[in-house]
Design a protein around this nucleic acid. Structure first.
Lengths: 341, 341
DNA sequence: GTCCTTAATGACAGCGCTAACACCGTTATC
DNA sequence: GATAACGGTGTTAGCGCTGTCATTAAGGAC
């Protein structure tokens, strides 16, 4: 038992030292074998690998990363997992991370900037290779920390503001605007809006602004709107549409804050025998798979959530440190014509 | 510039040493202040905090964890993010982890046991506090590593096999069986099944087995089944139901592998004017929110995905090391009667 | 044979932090 | 007034690994 003053039985069971002793070489040689780094004879390599197998040695990355100042972790900060879009972004991140051996450490802010700050602080403590974070709404302290960290930072989803380092996403204002144009071109004139909590979803707000903008330019404005306090959901969309139509008859097109809500709207129409598109146009946002499987495919805008995650990781790994000028990558969006508008 | 042989500009910018010097105390005192650990006078504490603020010091957890053999990381291994249930489990995990300051490190296996092994290996290298992993299908090496690691291991979702340490989930066999009983009691007799890839979804297979079991005990068996090669999706469910009904008319109840698929089935019926429940019963699994928002709420079984994640973390944090006997926690399920069966 | 290069290995210091113990001065205890 | 107890602080020695340089042996060039 070696132990100096430390507990004899700390967590670590087998260390490099043991493997080195067993295979009759130095620690650094074992390290070289394991990392495939530096010249090692085939003989030695085999001896070492044999010893590794025998001992069941598991390297300690904490020690490794500390010694080499290179952690192979990536911080990921997202507001929520309830909204389907973020798991999809995560998928994209994972897909790009797969081959690199980098592991994501995920934090959830619940749309709270204080929690986000806290989270960024503790993620940076792991000396991550890079940080991915959703949106532009951060406290000054958060922005400060991210800038000072020196690691690459990607702000995801949105490109309507200036990035700390790089931003990867699409213009939500533009999407809202194009939604309005699309519906106007199809002859709709009496617009309603059904949305969810704006405080937490700044991007929904941007789309709303874009929509209003498009209407205004045609001398129109929203006839009525219904905002649901809380996260978006199908049920909320269904109920909100009912409320809206009851309060304000005559509306011929309703734009929803996203597909979840819009599908709820579709369900309301199905239940009430309201003819989609003819009696009432319904328009969503996101382009979820389920919208395309509806009896009448949902008219919506497809955002490229998976690509946002993947692209961000790819871009960030190209250059390991922050270069001066912030950049923006537009992953775009496209209108899905569908059959509900 | 201190630097010995190392690069003068490694990643770390400000260290404890700097903060200590600036505030005129020793490193350990700074450490104590920052960890709120050990007695420190208010005066000293303030001096230190001031210096921390001035320097923008960010602790290095790699070093801290190495020194204290205690990492505050938790490994999480899930098969996929495409299937909505796993993000919900993740939510549960996050919710329980929130107050503890432990960060999850997430790995995705894509339902591949080799990748899983690889992933477990590299997650264990971070000396996590515990490991959460979905299901019981692991390679021997994976099981070995998990057992030897000494850290708590929770296997999630399923409780139909013996756990390495603890299992948290529900009986999928039982859910399938109860689905069958429920439909039989309602007088359905000609059963069809629509499912997705069994290779990747062992739990769907267990439910299927349970269903068949229930039918057999009533002297019945499936009339026909349609398996979709690939991940579950609403569109797949819709198309598969169509195929099934075309091939085998006269079926009066179809059990789907999950709600995604079942909702696709509902959409098919809506599009074809097939009267749900009367002409054809549709039954899902999961109890997704959207099923309840349909014009006719989906009949299904609610699994407690969020609770599985939360409970697993809570249980695992109660006792920090593996105790001998494997345990099982049943989070249960319940039938949601709905209006489609 | 000399010089140079390259492959293979090792010695050593140190990454940034914390556990363990030691120490000092002050106050409480009798 | 001696002893104990405690708050507050520092010294020291690592945690387990890898970067850097040194060393040896084995070829190749000429």
């Amino acid at each position: 038992m070696k132990s100096g003053r430390r507990q004899p039985d700390r967590k670590q069971k087998v260390t490099l030292t043991e493997v080195a002793k067993m295979s009759g070489v130095s620690e650094i040689t074992v390290s070289r074998v394991l990392r495939n780094n530096g010249p090692v004879s085939t003989q030695t390599r085999e001896k070492v690998l044999e010893a590794v197998k025998q001992t069941g040695y598991v390297p300690n990355r904490l020690a490794g990363s500390l010694a080499s100042a290179d952690s192979n972790l990536m911080g990921v900060v997202i507001p929520s997992l309830s909204n389907i879009v973020f798991p999809e972004v995560l998928r994209g991140i994972h897909s790009a991370l797969g081959p690199t051996g980098i592991q994501p450490v995920v934090g959830i802010t619940d749309y709270n900037m204080e929690i986000e700050e806290q989270l960024v602080r503790s993620l940076l403590a792991w000396k991550p290779q890079a940080m991915l974070i959703v949106g532009f709404d951060h406290t000054d302290a958060t922005r400060q920390m991210l800038r000072n960290s020196g690691v690459r930072v990607a702000e995801l989803m949105d490109i309507d503001s200036e990035a700390i380092d790089i931003a990867v996403g699409m213009s939500h204002r533009g999407a809202g605007y194009d939604t309005g144009r699309h519906l106007l071109e199809r002859g709709y004139r009496k617009f309603g809006y059904v949305g969810h909590d704006w405080l937490s979803d700044r991007r929904a707000r941007l789309r709303f602004d874009g929509l209003c903008d498009a209407l205004n330019r045609s001398g129109l404005s929203l006839v009525d709107q219904e905002l649901f306090q809380g996260p978006s959901s199908t049920m909320a969309g269904r109920q909100a549409l009912q409320a809206l139509l009851t309060r304000t008859p005559g509306i011929d097109a309703v734009v929803f804050s996203n597909d979840d809500m819009a599908i709820g709207g579709v369900f309301h129409c199905l239940a009430q025998n309201i003819a989609l598109k003819d009696d009432l146009a319904i328009f969503g946002f996101n382009g979820l798979e389920i919208g395309g499987a509806l009896p009448q495919p949902l008219s919506t805008i497809r955002s490229h959530r998976f690509e946002i995650g993947r692209t961000a990781v790819e871009k960030i790994l190209e250059t390991p440190v922050q270069h001066g000028a912030p950049a923006t990558i537009n992953t775009g969006y496209e209108i899905v014509v569908g059959a509900t508008a």
